[in-house]
Amino acid sequence: MKTDTAAGRGLGSLWLRLSGLALVLLSLALPYRLRWRWAYALNFILNRPRASGALLLKKPSQWLNHALLGVIYFIGIGGSWLAARFLGPKRGPREERTFWRDRGDPGGYDSGMDDQF
């Protein structure tokens, strides 16, 4: 039975964190309104490519801004995927007695309430 295609198991966490960090830092670096527009633009370009092509002719700088997010996706997410595929640990089929995972020290959950992670 194929169960290890599931997200997140054994992937290179460095790549994950770098791509995630790039997304977060780029978003944080923008002022609130621009960030909102950026998100809207990403939605626009991905959902309506023809209309966004027309936008390219009218407002090239804004389109460039939109395209940047697409680049992040394909470089960040795609790069991480490539790294996981070719550089990550190789896994064979596993036979486990239990699928339970230990949650670790509960103290960490208490003191960590200040953090979003």
């Binding site: 997140g8 997410i77 795609g78 995927w81 996981a84 979003q116 992670f117």
Partner: peptide
């Protein structure tokens, strides 16, 4: 909940399902 932990899970999912998760 912890939004950044959730975001981590979503990113991991996208990496794992690339490019089908587009």
């Amino acid at each position: 909940e912890k939004p950044l932990l959730k975001f981590e899970r979503i990113l991991m999912t996208h990496i794992d399902s690339f490019p089908e998760g587009f």
